[in-house]
Amino acid sequence: MTAPEIVARRIGAERQPIAIVDHFHPDPDGLRAAAAHAAFEPGRNHYPGVRAALPDNYFARIRPALTTVLAGVFAHRGAVSLIDASFSMVTLPPERLSRTQRLPHIDALAPDRIALVHYLSPHDSDGTAFFRHRATGFETIDSARSAQYLAALNAEMAARGDAPTGYITSSTPLFERISQVDARYNRCVLYRSALLHSGAIAPDAALSDDPARGRLTVTAFLSIA
Score class of each variant (00 low, 15 high):
Met1Val: 12
Pro4Gly: 13
Ile6His: 01
Val7Ile: 13
Ala8Thr: 05
Arg9Ile: 01
Arg9Gln: 09
Ile11Val: 08
Gly12Tyr: 12
Ala13Asp: 08
Val21Asn: 08
His23Gly: 10
Phe24Val: 04
His25Lys: 07
Arg32Lys: 13
Arg32Gln: 08
Ala33Trp: 03
Ala36Cys: 13
Ala36Asn: 08
Ala38Met: 12
Arg44Trp: 02
Asn45Met: 13
His46Ala: 12
Val50Pro: 01
Arg51Asp: 00
Arg51His: 06
Leu54Phe: 01
Leu54His: 01
Pro55Ser: 10
Pro55Val: 02
Asn57Lys: 05
Asn57Ile: 06
Arg61Leu: 14
Ile62Arg: 03
Arg63Tyr: 06
Pro64Trp: 10
Ala65Ile: 00
Leu66Asp: 01
Leu66Ala: 02
Thr68Gly: 01
Val69Ile: 08
Val69Tyr: 00
Val69Glu: 02
Gly72Lys: 03
Phe74Pro: 09
Phe74Gly: 12
His76Pro: 04
Gly78Asp: 05
Ala79Thr: 13
Val80Met: 11
Ser81Pro: 00
Leu82Gln: 09
Asp84Cys: 09
Ala85Asn: 09
Ala85Ser: 15
Met89Glu: 03
Val90Asn: 00
Pro93Gln: 04
Glu95Met: 06
Glu95Arg: 03
Glu95Tyr: 05
Ser98Asp: 06
Gln101Cys: 03
Leu103Val: 03
Pro104Leu: 08
Ile106Gly: 01
Leu109His: 14
Arg113Ile: 05
Arg113Asp: 00
Ala115Gly: 14
Leu116His: 09
Val117Phe: 00
Asp126Met: 07
Gly127Asp: 04
Ala129Asp: 02
Phe131Ala: 07
Arg134Ser: 10
Gly137Thr: 05
Thr140Glu: 10
Asp142Gln: 09
Ser143Gly: 09
Arg145Asn: 13
Ser146Arg: 12
Ala147Asp: 14
Gln148Leu: 13
Tyr149Leu: 09
Ala151Pro: 01
Leu153Trp: 09
Ala155Met: 07
Glu156Pro: 05
Arg160Tyr: 02
Arg160Leu: 15
Gly161Asp: 13
Gly161Ala: 09
Pro164Glu: 06
Thr165Tyr: 02
Gly166Asn: 11
Thr169Val: 15
Ser171Leu: 12
Thr172Ala: 12
Phe175Ser: 05
Phe175Thr: 04
Phe175Met: 05
Ile178Ser: 10
Ile178Cys: 12
Gln180Arg: 15
Val181Ala: 02
Val181Pro: 00
Asp182Ser: 15
Arg184His: 11
Leu190Gly: 11
Leu190Ile: 07
Tyr191Ile: 12
Tyr191Ala: 13
Tyr191Phe: 15
Arg192Thr: 15
Arg192Ala: 14
Arg192Glu: 15
Ser193Ile: 12
His197Gly: 08
His197Gln: 10
Pro203Thr: 07
Pro203Tyr: 03
Asp204Leu: 04
Ala206Val: 15
Asp209Gly: 06
Asp209Leu: 00
Asp209Tyr: 00
Arg213Trp: 00
Arg215Asn: 01
Leu216Trp: 03
Thr217Tyr: 00
Thr217His: 01
Val218Asp: 06
Leu222Asp: 12
Ser223Thr: 13
